[in-house]
Design a protein around this nucleic acid. Structure first.
Lengths: 156, 156
DNA sequence: CCTCCTGTGGTGTATCTGCAACACTTGCGA
DNA sequence: TCGCAAGTGTTGCAGATACACCACAGGAGG
């Protein structure tokens, strides 16, 4: 610190780099995302599309696009485009529109449920690979993390 | 299952959607990534750039691009482009090239360490937000997950 | 009834990533 | 020494995402 300003900087940089959570979570996401995409490719679904379809199926009622965006942590615009794709394929159906033609509520069609079911084996392979790598505690930790961050984000 | 083929499909789809790990990890990544990018923006670094710089700093020796790609779970091509950007900004320096001009080894420059240190406060805000959401066990679980998947991927 | 204002859906643009393909290098065995 | 195979850095291309922005809807208040 006295004669070597670079030395202190370097120390701090290493400390940050070593414990950076963003780095680790991003790496986990890339590993998992690639695996899911590779497995799901044969079914024609990407992971984000699978996510949208899943959330919509879980909600089990006509949902507004902005709701879906909030659940998934995705941008509203991204949801809008993904819904376009899914609607075009017949997996999702517009349940209500405003007077100007904007879609206000969407639901999963029978074909959508069928696509999800058809992706089952591929999904299971990816899921088994990931869940088999660790114990159940890790999954619980992941869920706690998500709910905590969600609550925190809603407040601020 | 007898007269309602859609019923069984729907059940399976909900089961998958509910426990899908890809969905949850992707959501966590989006939340975390957005936060880091937002905080780091003022320092001019994106999360991936920060990751590359960090790994390189941790390695503390001239590293080959493909090594970095392996550590981060990123594509070689993505590393190549990010290194271009970082080199152009002076944060990274090419330490060795082949006869055809390909970069074979890179190191962090003094300016790179300086950039990392300068991003410290912003990084700490994002890091505190995320790590403050859960207990230390979750971080351990995350690390276990990464090492397990990494080992599994190296084998096959 | 009108105006403001918040929230929402959609579009344009820039950027980034991965995949596929290419050129080159490195190391091994004939 | 000469191929041949595996690995590496780079680039073209297609796809997806986020941010900024715009147009519209639904209330609150005058």
């Amino acid at each position: 610190m006295q004669q070597e300003p670079g030395s202190g900087m370097r120390e701090q940089a290493l400390w940050m780099a070593d414990r950076c959570l963003g780095r680790r979570i991003a790496r986990l996401h890339r590993l998992v995302s690639r695996r899911f995409d590779a497995e799901l490719r044969e079914s024609g679904l990407t992971l984000p599309q699978f996510e949208v379809l899943s959330e919509l199926a879980l909600f089990d009622a006509p949902a507004r696009p902005s709701e879906i965006a909030g659940w998934l942590g995705l941008e509203r615009s991204t949801i809008s485009r993904n819904l376009d794709v899914l609607t075009h394929r017949g997996y999702v159906r517009v349940a209500a529109t405003s007077s100007t033609g904007r879609t206000t509520r969407v639901v999963v069609t029978e074909a959508g449920y069928h696509a999800l079911a058809e992706a089952g084996p591929a999904w299971q392979r990816a899921q088994a690979w990931i869940s088999g790598a660790v114990d159940a505690d890790a999954v619980d930790a992941l869920d706690r993390w998500l709910t905590a961050l969600d609550l925190d984000q809603q407040r601020g």
